[in-house]
Amino acid sequence: VTLFVALYDYEARTEDDLSAHKGEKFQILNSSEGDWWEARSLTTGETGYIPSNYVAPV
């Protein structure tokens, strides 16, 4: 399991995006899409895309 933590708040801009709150942890499901990674929030269980530069490894 690849875990990352949000460094900043991010507000989803499309229905495919996933909002993130600073300190929230995510499981990365797919990081092969360049700057946008598919992730699952460990807080809400929701999945979507987050900007890779907004997260760091735990």
Rank of each mutant, 00 (worst) to 15 (best):
F4T: 03
T47K: 09
L3Q: 07
Y8R: 09
D35Q: 09
G23M: 01
G45N: 07
D9F: 05
G45L: 06
P51C: 11
D17G: 15
N53F: 11
K25C: 12
N53V: 10
N53P: 05
G34Q: 12
A12S: 10
L7H: 02
E15A: 13
S19Y: 05
I28S: 01
W37E: 03
W37L: 10
S19M: 06
S31H: 10
R40H: 07
Q27A: 10
Y8Q: 08
V55H: 02
A20F: 15
V1H: 13
Y10I: 11
L7A: 03
L42D: 05
A20Q: 01
D17K: 14
E11C: 13
V5D: 00
S41K: 08
L18E: 00
S32M: 13
R40T: 14
L29N: 04
F26Q: 00
L18N: 01
W37T: 03
V5G: 01
A56N: 04
Y54P: 00
I28M: 05
I50E: 01
L42I: 09
Y49E: 00
G34M: 11
T2R: 12
S31M: 15
T2W: 13
Y8V: 07
Q27S: 07
N53I: 11
E24H: 03
W37C: 05
A20L: 15
A12T: 04
A12C: 06
T43V: 11
A12I: 03
P51N: 10
A56G: 08
E24Q: 05
D9K: 05
S32I: 11
D16F: 15
T14H: 14
I50H: 01
P57I: 08
T2C: 15
V5K: 02
Y54M: 15
L7G: 00
L7C: 10
G23T: 02
L18A: 01
D16K: 15
A20C: 14
W36G: 03
G45A: 04
L7T: 04
L42M: 13
A12D: 02
E46F: 10
K22T: 09
P51W: 09
H21G: 05
E24L: 02
S41Y: 04
E24K: 00
L29T: 06
R40W: 07
S32A: 11
T43S: 12
E46S: 10
L7E: 03
S52N: 05
E33K: 14
V55D: 01
T47A: 06
W36N: 06
S41R: 09
Y8H: 08
P57V: 08
Q27T: 09
T14N: 14
V58I: 13
G48Y: 05
G45M: 06
E15G: 13
F4K: 00
W37N: 01
E38A: 06
V55E: 01
T43I: 10
E11K: 10
V1Y: 14
P57S: 06
Y54R: 07
E46K: 15
T2D: 11
G34T: 12
Y10W: 15
H21M: 11
I28W: 02
R40K: 13
E11A: 10
L3I: 15
L3M: 10
L7F: 02
G34P: 14
P57Y: 05
E33M: 14
Y8S: 07
R40S: 06
G34I: 10
G34H: 10
V1G: 13
E33T: 12
D9N: 08
D17I: 08
E11Q: 12
E11I: 13
V58W: 14
N30F: 07
L42F: 06
P51L: 07
L18C: 06
F4H: 06
L29G: 03
W37M: 06
L42G: 03
E11G: 05
K22S: 05
K25D: 01
H21V: 14
S31D: 13
T2N: 12
T47G: 02
T43R: 11
H21S: 12
N53E: 10
V5C: 07
D35S: 08
Y54I: 15
E15V: 11
S52K: 14
D16I: 13
E24Y: 02
L29A: 05
T47W: 09
T43E: 15
V58S: 07
T43M: 11
G23W: 05
T44C: 04
T43G: 06
P51K: 07
A20S: 05
T44P: 00
S31A: 13
F26V: 04
R13Y: 07
D17L: 08
S19A: 07
L18Y: 03
V55P: 01
I50D: 02
L42E: 10
D9M: 05
N30W: 07
V1L: 13
G45P: 00
V5E: 09
N30Y: 07
V55K: 00
D16H: 15
E46M: 14
D9L: 05
H21A: 10
T14K: 13
S41L: 03
N53A: 14
A20I: 15
I28L: 06
V1I: 13
W36H: 08
I28D: 01
D16S: 14
L18S: 01
I50Q: 01
Y10L: 07
S31F: 15
A39H: 02
F4Q: 01
G23F: 04
A56T: 11
V55C: 06
E15T: 12
R40F: 10
A12W: 04
A39R: 00
W36L: 11
A20T: 15
T47I: 14
A20V: 15
G34S: 13
A12L: 03
V5M: 08
E15S: 13
D16E: 12
E38P: 04
G48A: 03
S32Q: 12
I28Q: 01
T43Q: 09
T14Y: 14
E11W: 09
D35K: 07
N30A: 08
G34W: 09
T44F: 02
A56I: 12
A56S: 09
A56D: 04
Y54F: 12
Y49K: 13
L42A: 05
L29C: 09
H21K: 15
Y54W: 08
A39K: 00
R13N: 08
W37D: 03
E38N: 06
I50R: 00
G45F: 07
L18T: 01
E46T: 07
K25F: 15
S41C: 09
V55I: 13
D17H: 15
V5R: 00
T2F: 11
L29Q: 04
L7V: 08
N53H: 13
